[in-house]
């Protein structure tokens, strides 16, 4: 059986984090951007659980519950804003949301 070490977990979570980060910077659809933001939080959670397991402390596992709660609150507020914006503008593409300019 194959055993994954700490390095592998941290590497995967760093890759996921980078994927989310560049997704936020490069994608044009607000909903996809929002999914990328959640991906970054999940990547942090994966690293946290791996560190917690390999360090032998429970604190990291407990912190995961806080992160999940916060992510849920953030999604609730964020989707509400996106829906309200869609009702006003009928678009969620970032290149069309540029009315705030000099």
């Amino acid at each position: 059986m194959l055993h994954a070490g700490l390095e592998q977990y941290v590497l995967v979570s760093a890759l996921l984090f980078a994927l989310g980060f560049f997704g936020v910077l490069l994608r044009k659809n607000t909903l996809v951007i929002y999914m990328c933001l959640e991906l970054m939080l999940v990547a942090s959670t994966l690293a946290l659980v791996a560190f917690s397991r390999f360090n032998g402390t429970m604190d990291g596992n407990v912190f995961v519950f806080f992160i999940l709660t916060i992510a849920a609150a953030e999604v609730a507020v964020g989707l509400a804003i996106i829906v309200a914006l869609f009702r006003q503008r009928h678009t969620v593409q970032v290149e069309e949301l540029n009315h705030l300019k000099n």
């Binding site: 951007i33 933001l37 996106i82 309200a84 914006l85 006003q88 949301l97």
Partner: peptide, 9 residues
């Protein structure tokens, strides 16, 4: 709302 979305992201 546009400001809200930008602040959110």
């Amino acid at each position: 709302l546009e400001a809200g979305l930008k602040y959110l992201v």
